[in-house]
C-alpha cells in the first residue's frame, strides 16, 4: 500500500494521466480503425461474421479497391459527394464571409447577441434543423408555394409549375448542408477577422485605397487562413454526410456515406464497406492537413506582427 502511494507521488500520477486516455483511445479508436483498414483487404464470405482471410481466396484481397475505379456506383457516389460538399462549401463561404465580416463591424453589444444567434442553432438538434427544411421544401408548404408563385409569375405560360420539385434533389442536399454547416464557416472566419488590426485598414485608406481596394489588398489576404479553416470544417463532414442526403437527397444518386452504410447493413459486404470508408478517409487526408495547418494560423492571425 505504501509502495503504491509513493509510486503515485513520484511518477504514478503522471503515468495515470497519460495512460488512461491513451489506453481508452487505443482501444476504442485506434484498434477499431485498424480493423476497418484490415477489413478492407479481407474477402467477403457467407459466414458470420461475413469475412475471411486466405483459404481459397487471396490472403490480402485488393479487389474492392479495384471496384472503386471500375463500378459506376462508386465513381458516381464519390463524384456526387465531393461535388455537393464543394458547392455547399462555396455557398457557405459566399454567405458566411460577409456575415463574419459584418460581425466584426457592429457594436460590441450587438456583436455578442448576433454571435449568440449564430451559435444557438448548434445547440438545437441537428436532425431537427434538417427536418425544418423538409417542412419548407415539401410540395404544399407555404415556402414552396411562394417560390412557385414567383416562378410562375416570371416564366412564360408553358413553363408554369404546380410546385417546385425541391425535395429529393441534390439541390436540397446542398441547401440543407449550407444551412446546417454555415456556423462552422462563420465562427473560424470571425475569429480570424476579429484579430486583424483595424489600423491596417486605415493605413491602406491613408495610402489612397478605397474601401473595396482595402478589402481586396488588406483584409482578404489576411483572412485566407480563416477561409481555409472554415472551408475544410464544412467540406470534410459534408463529404461524408449521411443524414442529410438520406432525408432530403435523391435516392438514385447516393453519396458515399449512404454507400458505406448500405454496403454494411443491406448488402452485408463488410470488406467493401470498409474499402469505401478507407477510400473516403484517404480523400480527406489532404483537406485535413490543410485544415490542421491553417486552423492555428487563423486563430493567431496578425499576432506575428505584434511586438
Amino acid at each position: 500500500m505504501k509502495a503504491l502511494a509513493s509510486w503515485f507521488h513520484r511518477r504514478g500520477w503522471r503515468e495515470l494521466i497519460i495512460g488512461i486516455p491513451y489506453l481508452w483511445l487505443t482501444l476504442f479508436f485506434l484498434i477499431p480503425f485498424l480493423i476497418v483498414v484490415a477489413m478492407s483487404v479481407a474477402t467477403r464470405t457467407p459466414t458470420a461474421p461475413p469475412f475471411g482471410y486466405g483459404g481459397e481466396n487471396p490472403i490480402l484481397n485488393f479487389e474492392g479497391y479495384g471496384r472503386l475505379f471500375t463500378e459506376t456506383l462508386y465513381i458516381r457516389a464519390f463524384v456526387t459527394s465531393l461535388m455537393n460538399a464543394a458547392i455547399a462549401t462555396l455557398f457557405c463561404l459566399a454567405l458566411g464571409y460577409p456575415m463574419a465580416l459584418g460581425l466584426t463591424r457592429v457594436s460590441k453589444s450587438w456583436r455578442n447577441i448576433l454571435l449568440m444567434l449564430v451559435i444557438l442553432p448548434f445547440w438545437t438538434s441537428f436532425l431537427l434543423r434538417v427536418y425544418a427544411w423538409m417542412g419548407l421544401m415539401g410540395r404544399n408548404s407555404w415556402f414552396n408555394s411562394m417560390l412557385t408563385d414567383a416562378w410562375n409569375f416570371v416564366v412564360p405560360q408553358a413553363y408554369t409549375l404546380n410546385s417546385i420539385p425541391m425535395m429529393n434533389t441534390n439541390f436540397a442536399v446542398i441547401l440543407v448542408m449550407v444551412y446546417t454547416y454555415l456556423p462552422f464557416m462563420i465562427l473560424p472566419l470571425y475569429a480570424n477577422l476579429e484579430r486583424l488590426d483595424p489600423v491596417l485598414d486605415e493605413a491602406a485608406m491613408d495610402l489612397g485605397s478605397r474601401p473595396f481596394q482595402v478589402f481586396r489588398d488588406v483584409t482578404l489576404p489576411q483572412s485566407i487562413p480563416g477561409i481555409i479553416a472554415g472551408g475544410m470544417l464544412v467540406f470534410i463532414p459534408a463529404a461524408g454526410e449521411l443524414v442529410i442526403p438520406s432525408l432530403v437527397g435523391n435516392p438514385s444518386s447516393p453519396m458515399i456515406g449512404r454507400i458505406i452504410s448500405d454496403e454494411f447493413a443491406q448488402v452485408r459486404d463488410w470488406p467493401m464497406a470498409s474499402t469505401v470508408a478507407v477510400a473516403l478517409l484517404i480523400l480527406m487526408v489532404g483537406p485535413t492537413m490543410l485544415y490542421a495547418r491553417y486552423q492555428q494560423k487563423a486563430e493567431s492571425a496578425g499576432a506575428e506582427d505584434k511586438p
Binding site: 480493423i35 477489413m39 470534410i236 463529404a239 449521411l242 456515406g257 470498409s274 480527406m284
Partner: peptide, 18 residues
C-alpha cells in the same frame, strides 16, 4: 485529433465491427 474530423459514418462502422 483524428476523431474530430473523422466522418461519423466511419467512426460508426468501425465501432460496430469492433
Amino acid at each position: 485529433t483524428a476523431p474530430l474530423i473523422m466522418p461519423e459514418v466511419i467512426t460508426g462502422i468501425s465501432l460496430l465491427i469492433f
